[in-house]
C-alpha cells in the first residue's frame, strides 16, 4: 500500500459564509466556515480548500481571520485561493495558516507570479487553478482557459497552459471543468485524464460531482490524484467518510 488518493471538500467563502452556486451564479448559504471545516476534518477529509469568492475588496481580510481560526484547530493541509494577485497576497495567506495558495486569474495576467511565488515559498505551496471549458467540435475540440470565475475567455489552450505552469514551478493543478461545475453530472473525465497524462505534478479534479460514482470515476477513469467536491458534502448528502468507504470498496486506496 502506498500513497492514498485525496478527497478534498471545497468551501466557497464570501462575506464570512460558506456558499455554493451553480456555474458560479445563484449562491446558497452552507454555513459558518470554521464549523464546516471542523466537521469535514472530523469526517476524515484529507485536505480542505477555501475559495474566497468575495467580490468586494472591503471584505477581503475576512478570509485571513477565518483561516487563522481554522488553522488553530484543524491539522490537515489547508489550501486557500481567490483574489491572489501578488506575492504579498501569498505571504499573507501563508502567514495566516494556509499551507498552499491557489492562483488562478493572476497567473494568466502575469505568469511570472507563479515563478516568483514558487521561488520564494517553494513549489509545494503553489497550486495553479485552471478553469477549463471545452471549445470547438470534432478534431478541433480542445479546452480553453477561462478566468474571472469562468466569465472571461483567454484563447489559451488549457493543456499547454498546464505544462507551462508546471515548468514555472506550480506544485499541483486544481483543474475545474467550467462545463461541469455545479451541474452534478460528473467530472469532465477526458479533460482530467488528458491533464494527468500530460503533466508530472498532481492533478486535483474539480467540477461536477453529484454522486459517489463520480468520485470513483475521477480517480479511475480520470486518473486524478485527488478529487474535490463541494455540494455533495455541504448539504449532508454524503459524509467524507462515506465517500472514502465507497471509494475503498471500488479498489481505490484512501486514508480511512
Amino acid at each position: 500500500m502506498g500513497l492514498a488518493k485525496r478527497i478534498i471538500p471545497c468551501l466557497d467563502v464570501t462575506a464570512g459564509r460558506v456558499v455554493k452556486g451553480v456555474n458560479f451564479v445563484g449562491l446558497r448559504d452552507a454555513g459558518d466556515p470554521v464549523e464546516v471545516a471542523r466537521r469535514y476534518d472530523d469526517q476524515g477529509a484529507d485536505e480542505l480548500t477555501f475559495l474566497d469568492i468575495t467580490a468586494s475588496s472591503d471584505d477581503r481580510d475576512l478570509i485571513l481571520s477565518i483561516i487563522e481560526e481554522v488553522a488553530a484547530q484543524v491539522f490537515i493541509p489547508l489550501t486557500v485561493g481567490g483574489g491572489v494577485r501578488a506575492v504579498e497576497d501569498v505571504r499573507r495567506l501563508l502567514n495566516a495558516g494556509a499551507d498552499k495558495v491557489s492562483i488562478n486569474t493572476a497567473a494568466v495576467q502575469n505568469p511570472r507570479l507563479v515563478a516568483e511565488a514558487a521561488g520564494r515559498y517553494g513549489s509545494q505551496c503553489i497550486v495553479v487553478a485552471v478553469d477549463a471549458k471545452r471549445v470547438g467540435e470534432g478534431p478541433e475540440a480542445h479546452w480553453e482557459v477561462f478566468t474571472h470565475g469562468g466569465r472571461k475567455a483567454t484563447g489559451i489552450d488549457a493543456l499547454d497552459w498546464g505544462r507551462k505552469m508546471e515548468a514555472l514551478g506550480a506544485g499541483e493543478i486544481l483543474l475545474t471543468s467550467m462545463d461541469r461545475d455545479g451541474t452534478r453530472s460528473g467530472f469532465d473525465l477526458e479533460l482530467t485524464c488528458a491533464f494527468s497524462e500530460a503533466l508530472d505534478i498532481p492533478i486535483i479534479a474539480s467540477g461536477g460531482v453529484g454522486t459517489l460514482d463520480h468520485m470513483v470515476d475521477g480517480i479511475i477513469k480520470g486518473r486524478a490524484d485527488a478529487v474535490l467536491a463541494a455540494s455533495i458534502f455541504h448539504y449532508g448528502e454524503f459524509t467524507v467518510r462515506q465517500t472514502k468507504e465507497y471509494m475503498a470498496r471500488h479498489g481505490i486506496e484512501v486514508r480511512l
Binding site: L3, K5, E172, E197, D200, P202, R255
Partner: peptide
C-alpha cells in the same frame, strides 16, 4: 506503480 500508472512528483498526500 504496480499497475503501470504514472506516479507524480512531488510525492504529495497521505502515505503509510
Amino acid at each position: 506503480d504496480a499497475n503501470g500508472n504514472k506516479l507524480k512528483v512531488p510525492h504529495m498526500g497521505w502515505n503509510e
